[in-house]
Simulated assay, not measured.
Amino acid sequence: MRFISDWLAAAPYRAVVLNIAMLVLLLALVDSTALFALVGASCLAVAGLVGLRGALRASFTRGGGARAAFDRVLVWLPGAAALTLGAVGLHLAVTAPAGSTLHLAGVALFGFELVMLALPADGKPAPAKAV
């Protein structure tokens, strides 16, 4: 018999995705725009700062020399795009009427982009196992 802990331990990112999904679902169910805005903005700020630190580290090679401009864009662009889309999703989730299509799209976009910000870009997926 397989337990959920075995499934979560098979790939480390699964626990992160599950925790973020539970947080976003809880915020959506509480139906408090002020709480959603406060917690959501705090999550985006923390994820943005962690991403900024990683991007700054990746922008420079270990030898002390700078990377090419195109390589820096490839390092900075995914995180900046995810942060921007997460902020748009948070804005839609907070400003749109509860239950509307824009509200639900905002909640989904915010949750998805928060997952993208939380997962490490250099993490390698676990190899597939035969059942």
Rank of each mutant, 00 (worst) to 15 (best):
M1P: 09
F3V: 12
F3T: 14
F3G: 12
I4S: 13
I4V: 12
I4K: 10
D6V: 11
W7M: 06
L8G: 05
L8H: 01
L8M: 15
L8A: 07
L8V: 10
A9F: 02
A10L: 13
A10R: 15
A10I: 06
A10T: 11
P12T: 09
R14C: 06
A15M: 12
V16Y: 01
V16P: 00
V17E: 14
L18G: 00
N19H: 04
I20M: 10
A21I: 12
A21N: 12
M22I: 15
L23C: 02
V24K: 02
L25F: 10
L27M: 15
D31T: 04
S32N: 15
A34N: 07
A34P: 00
L35G: 00
A37Q: 09
A37F: 08
L38T: 09
A41C: 11
A45P: 03
V46C: 08
A55K: 03
L56Y: 04
F60D: 02
F60Y: 09
R62Y: 00
G63I: 01
G64M: 07
G65M: 06
A66V: 11
R67P: 02
A68Q: 10
A69L: 14
F70T: 11
F70S: 08
D71H: 06
L74W: 11
V75A: 01
V75Q: 00
V75G: 01
W76T: 04
L77S: 09
G79H: 08
A81I: 14
A81M: 15
A82S: 15
L83P: 01
G86M: 09
G86A: 06
V88T: 11
V88Y: 08
V88M: 07
L92V: 00
V94A: 10
T95N: 05
P97I: 07
G99E: 03
G99R: 06
S100E: 13
T101P: 00
L102F: 13
H103M: 03
L104I: 02
L104M: 10
L104Q: 11
A105S: 09
L109T: 15
G111V: 00
E113T: 13
E113M: 15
L114F: 08
L114Q: 04
V115E: 01
M116I: 03
D122F: 11
G123H: 11
K124G: 02
P125L: 10
A126G: 03
P127N: 05
P127G: 03
P127F: 02
K129L: 15
